[in-house]
Design a protein around this nucleic acid. Structure first.
Length: 650
DNA sequence: GTCTGTAATCTTTTT
DNA sequence: GATTACAGAC
């Protein structure tokens, strides 16, 4: 492990202005934070409790490195979302007053995508590959299933198959091993599922398409090539990884390879906040790494976010406390968290909505209020209630805008232009035209000439019949070299606008959506850049302006609330079966649910309301309603009663 | 072969 | 509640 940095014995070296005279920046860090920032190299882990200034540590770390003369291009920052990366760069820039141009920062998917486009030829990949979302992947899996599974044969559903294939990739295990360890119930199907996976991979290769997992898998393979690892690895003198508790096996491997040359790696995370095990995340990565040789472990455990009352409750609920953390608090006493019991979901919605109204009237900004829930459907009643009360709200969970049919339809045109082999998109396009259904699509897709030169072929596709005329017309006017918004504009004006008007009830909204897509596309010169960003950047806000967001209450799943904070937080539907989910109860995966709950309650700065329904959980799908009284899966039962006030609403 | 209306099925979390 | 499968009309 090389130590490229000199040891610095004073804290005066980091400055706002880069002159080395002011120590203002470092003084604003506490002792725990400062130790982590001043770490001089090698492997280190920062165990960061919620609200302990983790972002601050990373941003100061970056500023510190830059003040030592390290080129921003020598730093690789991997974060959980693109938004987090942007935020950190922005703040690091403010601290250091130095531009951070050229710094590599983004999610694993961003970093891997970058590598793959750059070195595609080494893996015999088309650099213009499409990125498949879950729906696309599922479509292909279904095709693969048809190859091996008889009609009416009893078999796990396509989405389960995809889940198994995906988990296997993320944990770098074989399908058989994955089934044995995590899906034992499907043991009898192991052989067929492996065949389906092979077929699925072949189909993707034929279409030059990669799914989300492939981005990681191929990038990891790429870094196994010595020349690539050495070239990329020596680019990065420092590697920083945020939310390390949510990295999975393959991501951990990628990190190791990136830092294999210089050996300066700092990971930041909190094992108690690991909530992505369904895609292979292992908080054990932190523990494993902490046991490696020469690793330094820093703990930052002072909570700057929440009131002492909230921190007390949080401390009582820390899951799998391996590093025996206990949060310290710095804020003044305020109010105790409140457990609110209502009869059912409707009553709960009415309560939350009324309370929000009160809080807003007392001067709290709607922007500082959030409602968190375990799954999206739990927000439906509340959405209705908030609308009735005319309380503005923004929903972060649910179907992503870019997943809606109309948006995917128009994007398909862009996708086939850059990657003509993308038959998933061709299918979508063809079926938009009246009179073309599944059978016709197959006929075209299997046509030899089409297979060879799809784009040229569609310019004469009307020889297949009159119903193809419109397609021919459109493709004569658009090309891969055009700007993305020009292509979309043409598609929209020449037919898709009419298609919407003819097909959908909510035509105006959908047409507006497409216009907004075109507007966003206008920020890009290159079609592929635009498509890639849409595919792997978490949220493209489409229907709301920044100003609207500031004036509205946030509704979100706990998963999407990661890293965020609000003055007022309502956690709703904390009923056994809802939260923790019935799924987790039946699978015996309660520890992860506890961590999700922990993440939820640690988002609150001043007011925390934990809402539960006495009528029991509303998950009829899994059979019996689960009674709440005395239930061992009841989170509220686990909180010492002295730490909260109880309100009973009726 | 395609379109359309209705019945059946499934429902966690996300890049 | 949303997607999918199926049946029957064109």
């Amino acid at each position: 492990m090389s130590r490229e940095l000199k040891k610095f014995d004073t804290i005066y070296n980091l400055s706002y202005d880069g002159t080395g005279k002011s120590n203002e920046a470092l003084v604003s860090l506490d002792d725990e934070q400062r130790k982590a920032v001043l770490d001089e190299g090698g492997f280190s882990i920062v165990i960061a409790g919620p609200g302990s200034g983790k972002t601050k540590v990373i941003t100061y770390k970056i500023a510190y490195l830059i003040s030592k003369g390290i080129d921003p291009r020598q730093i690789l920052l991997v974060t959980f979302t693109k938004a987090a990366a942007n935020e950190m760069i922005h703040r690091a820039q403010q601290v250091s007053k130095n531009p951070l141009d050229g710094m590599m920062a983004g999610t694993f998917h961003h970093v891997c995508n970058y590598l793959l486009r750059k070195y595609a030829s080494l893996l015999k990949l088309d650099p213009n590959f499409s990125i498949l979302d879950e729906e696309d992947s599922l479509t292909i899996v279904k095709h693969a299933i048809n190859e091996y599974v008889e009609r009416n044969e009893k078999f796990p559903s396509p989405s389960v198959i995809l889940k198994i294939i995906s988990l296997a990739a993320n944990t770098q295990r074989s399908v058989e091993q994955t089934i044995e360890e995590d899906f034992i119930y499907f043991y009898a199907f192991s052989d067929k599922i492996r065949k389906i996976k092979d077929e699925y991979n072949e189909l993707k290769a034929e279409q030059s398409s990669l799914d989300y997992d492939d981005l990681l898998v191929y990038a990891n393979d790429l870094l196994d090539i010595q020349s690539v690892r050495e070239k990329e690895g020596s680019n990065y003198l420092w590697v920083l990884v945020d939310e390390f508790q949510d990295t999975n096996k393959i991501q951990y491997d990628i990190v190791k390879k990136f830092s294999s040359i210089h050996g300066n790696l700092m990971v930041v995370g909190d094992d108690a906040q690991s909530i992505y095990s369904f895609r292979g995340a292992r908080y054990e990565n932190i523990i494993e790494m902490s046991r490696e040789k020469d690793v330094k472990v820093y703990k930052i455990q002072t909570n700057y976010r929440s009131t002492p009352e909230i921190v007390n409750l949080v401390n009582a609920m820390i899951p799998n406390n391996i590093f025996s953390k206990i949060l310290k608090t710095v804020k003044n006493n305020f109010e105790r968290p409140i457990v609110v019991s209502t009869w059912d979901s409707l009553e709960e919605s009415v309560f939350v909505s009324k309370k929000i109204n009160e809080l807003i009237n007392s001067g709290i900004s709607p922007f500082q209020i959030a409602v968190l829930y375990r799954n999206h459907s739990q927000s439906m009643d509340l959405q209705i209630e908030l609308s009735k009360s005319k309380i503005p709200f923004t929903v972060r969970s649910g179907v992503k805008f870019t997943d809606s049919k109309h948006v995917k339809d128009v994007l398909s045109f862009l996708r086939v232009l850059v990657n003509p082999k993308d038959s998933i998109s061709w299918m979508r396009i063809f079926q938009l035209f009246y009179g073309i259904g599944k059978k016709s699509v197959e006929k075209v897709l299997y046509d030899e000439t089409f297979k060879r030169e799809p784009i040229d072929f569609v310019k004469h596709i009307s020889q297949f019949g009159d119903k193809y005329e419109k397609i021919e017309e459109i493709f004569k006017k658009i090309s891969a070299e055009d700007k993305p918004d020009d292509v979309l504009n043409h598609v929209f004006e020449s037919f898709y606008s009419d298609y919407i008007a003819f097909t959908f009830e909510d035509r105006i909204e959908r047409q507006m959506d497409i216009k907004r897509v075109i507007e966003i596309a206008g920020r890009y010169k290159d079609i592929n850049d635009f498509l890639t960003d849409l595919a792997i950047t978490e949220q493209i806000d489409i229907d709301r302006k920044e100003k609207d967001k500031e004036e509205s209450v946030t509704l979100t799943t706990v998963h999407r609330a990661k890293g965020l904070e609000w003055d007022v937080v309502f956690v709703i539907s904390v009923n056994p079966g809802d939260f923790p989910s019935s799924f987790a109860i039946s699978e015996g995966k309660l520890d992860e649910e506890e961590r999700v709950f922990y993440v939820a309650i640690t988002r609150a700065k001043k007011y925390l309301f934990i809402c539960r329904q006495m009528s029991g959980s509303r998950t009829p799908y899994y059979g019996n309603r689960i009674q709440i009284n005395g239930n061992k899966y009841d989170f509220v039962e686990k909180i010492p009663p002295a730490l909260y006030d109880h309100w009973k609403i009726n």
